[in-house]
Design a protein around this nucleic acid. Structure first.
Lengths: 149, 149
DNA sequence: GAAGATTGACTTCTCAATCTTT
DNA sequence: AAAGATTGAGAAGTCAATCTTC
């Protein structure tokens, strides 16, 4: 059942699937244990915080969050209901909407990062050598960029 | 917002998240375009095919599929309804149930693999050098194993 | 008519509670 | 009482269709 792809690369793929699943599960578990929102909320809030004006169009946000356009609407609904971001009109284009992070949202990022980063440090970063980290970033970055073709 | 973890490893993590999302999305899309079941069905059927007697206890299967125990029950329901696997009693333990792949299930694996493997070859394997593939398999394998602690 | 965003209907996943067997 | 598996209820995701604005 494995003909088209060489064994070393197939092993790498399986390892990626497992590593992704275990680290994400550990992060979700730690966040829940600290009574904090799920990882998806961080994924939405972080790009907003990092954006030039602390805001992004829904369309731009959807690309960064790697979720369907529809799924993002629902996710933003929930995060907005919690007061961590606010929708704002776009001057000059009444079709559009910005999602803008609020100060409560920024505070939430600051509460979530120690948990998220802590799990990442222990479960993802610690087992890696410096050389491996560089190879991972380069190789996986190339694969991720390939998705844009 | 990024203090605990060094930049190279954080980049590696972001790249992993993106690479995972883009490759999985491409596989799902290709399977759907070929009128084949989703990746999760492959994830269930493959461990059964690879198992000693072409069957596994529900509990064992849940560990390999990296899904919650409850989620697996629902997934197995659907795959069983399609005739690709069958539940069987466990001799000597009437609490338990085996999931056993059927010949139709094996045939389905053979139809799915060319699509799955083809996307993997193009989107995951092709951009990797031999050396990178080895590093990925080793490093990510170590991280995945850390989940068992 | 196409782009941006949303809504409705449906599918799938998860948690807590349940049932059966050990 | 604990282990194995399942069920009910709720949360969250997707596709197709819709509404508004360009």
């Amino acid at each position: 059942m494995g003909a088209a792809i060489d064994p070393a690369r197939l092993s790498a793929w399986r390892a990626l699937l497992e590593a992704h699943a275990t680290v994400v599960a550990a992060v979700e578990h730690a966040l829940a244990a600290a009574s904090l929102p799920p990882l998806s909320w961080y994924d939405v809030l972080w790009p907003l915080y990092a954006a030039p004006e602390r805001r992004l169009r829904m369309r731009e946000l959807a690309e960064r969050v790697l979720i369907s356009r529809t799924g993002l609407v629902r996710l933003v609904d929930r995060v907005e209901a919690a007061g961590l971001l606010a929708r704002e009109p776009v001057p000059g284009d009444r079709r559009g909407a910005y999602a803008a992070i609020t100060s409560e949202g920024i505070a939430m990022l600051r509460r979530m990062w120690p948990i998220y980063g802590g799990v990442l440090a222990a479960r993802f970063a610690e087992p890696l050598s410096d050389a491996e980290a560089d190879v991972l970033a380069a190789a996986l970055g190339r694969i991720a960029a390939g998705g844009t073709r």
